[in-house]
């Protein structure tokens, strides 16, 4: 009886074999990870209202690019890696204001967002380190502080009719689940050279999905910047 081996299994097997076939060199100490990631972002502002849709009216139905930089400190490296990390990001939504008849104005309006996060991270890299399996699941959770400001048609920070300034800080939390792929498995010699010369132990491509609750923990006086984000990027462990 012939057994068909699926292509993905064959590829993974090849990667594992390739990874384990190299002569073992001493790895430099690893203590940190830096991530650069990008993804679409769209907040749940309109869900605050039963009938109004101020976000969609101004910025349309699409998403905007979120760019984030994360830096982690790995403090536990027994079974998997526990780390604490900080993230800073930026996104800008651009759109147009509305005239009194609700039609689109030529005046532009933009919302700028700078999210800051503090996270506890767990990476299950046991299979990678023990069996050279190149996929590493990761989960994260933590708190967030989103700085935001809205500009109007002349580029100034907006001000509502009641005098409220269109800028602020909204707090919340997040949970993230993701998967990382170890690039070193594709080029082990290059990875070893990278480690020896500049101390980068591992390089990953990764994708993660984040649930954000950013509304000052349910306050009805705060803008709802909650969202569900898919982000992908590159990470360096060193």
């Amino acid at each position: 009886m012939r057994t068909a081996i699926s292509v993905p299994v064959a590829v993974l097997t090849a990667l594992v074999v390739l990874g384990t076939s190299l002569p073992a060199l001493a790895e430099s100490p690893r203590a940190f990870m830096a991530e650069l990631k990008f993804g679409p972002w769209r907040p749940d502002v309109d869900k605050e209202f039963a009938t109004k849709t101020p976000w969609s009216d101004a910025f349309g139905g699409g998403s905007f690019l979120m760019t984030q930089l994360e830096f982690d400190w790995e403090f536990f490296k027994k079974v998997g890696v526990l780390a604490v990390g900080g993230t800073i990001g930026y996104s800008q939504a651009k759109g147009h204001g509305r005239l009194s008849d609700k039609t689109k104005s030529t005046d532009t309006t933009s919302m700028h967002l700078m999210p800051l996060s503090l996270s506890l991270i767990y990476r299950f890299d046991y299979l990678e380190r023990r069996f050279k399996f190149p996929f590493v699941p990761v989960v994260k959770g933590g708190v967030d502080a989103y700085f935001w400001w809205v500009t109007n048609g002349v580029g100034s920070v907006s001000k509502a009719a009641d005098g409220t300034s269109g800028k602020g800080l909204t707090m919340g939390g997040h949970v993230t689940a993701g998967i990382m792929f170890l690039l070193d498995s594709l080029a082990p010699m290059m990875a070893q050279t990278l480690d020896q010369e500049i101390g980068v132990n591992n390089t990953y491509l990764f994708a993660e999905y984040t649930w954000n609750w950013i509304d000052d923990f349910g306050s009805n006086k705060s803008i709802n910047l909650s969202s569900r984000n898919f982000l992908a990027g590159i990470a360096f462990e060193f």
């Binding site: 039963a50 309006t109 009641d162």
Partner: peptide, 29 residues
């Protein structure tokens, strides 16, 4: 002419400041 930018539209009172009064109870509604 007067134009409502995003924040002005968000805070514009038809039903209240920011969120509608009391907010939105999805399941009960």
């Amino acid at each position: 002419v007067p134009v409502l930018d995003f924040f002005e539209a968000y805070r514009d009172g038809d039903g209240g400041v920011g969120r509608e009064k009391g907010g939105y109870c999805f399941i009960a509604t």
